[in-house]
């Protein structure tokens, strides 16, 4: 969906998305680097599960939520990529504690 203006002077920065190695450039936001790498959907709509993509790229739409280095609910459009960053998709329901079987309420 997105591609780069070629600029050989920009320092490459590698990070991982869902275990996959992605190469971005220094100064990229996580969202821009993922879009440039062809990853169009970072999360699904909570109710229907339909795929969503960043809409505003400035921190108000919350469609770019990801988990970064174990911390959830991060807005990918506000955070610059760092070498070795581990980025994962945002989960509609956070994985904390021990899930209980059966009736939850």
């Amino acid at each position: 969906m997105f591609q780069r203006l070629t600029d050989p002077s920009r320092k490459p920065v590698s990070f991982r998305f869902e275990g996959q190695e992605i190469e971005g450039a220094e100064g990229d936001t996580v969202a821009a680097a993922l879009l440039a790498a062809g990853i169009t959907s970072l999360k699904d709509a909570p109710a229907s599960g339909s795929p969503r993509s960043p809409y505003c790229m400035m921190g108000v739409c919350f469609e770019c939520l990801v988990e970064i280095d174990g911390a959830g609910h991060q807005q990918a459009c506000l955070i610059p990529i760092r070498e070795g960053m581990d980025v994962r998709r945002h989960l509609a329901a956070q994985n904390i504690g021990e899930a209980v079987a059966g009736d939850t309420q």
Binding site: F2, A25, D28, T29, A32, S53, M57
Partner: peptide, 17 residues
């Protein structure tokens, strides 16, 4: 997306649709 979103991607990351 919004026009501003495209512009932000351009500004921060030199990335365009």
């Amino acid at each position: 997306m919004s026009v501003g979103a495209v512009q932000s991607a351009l500004k921060t990351s030199g990335v365009y649709p």
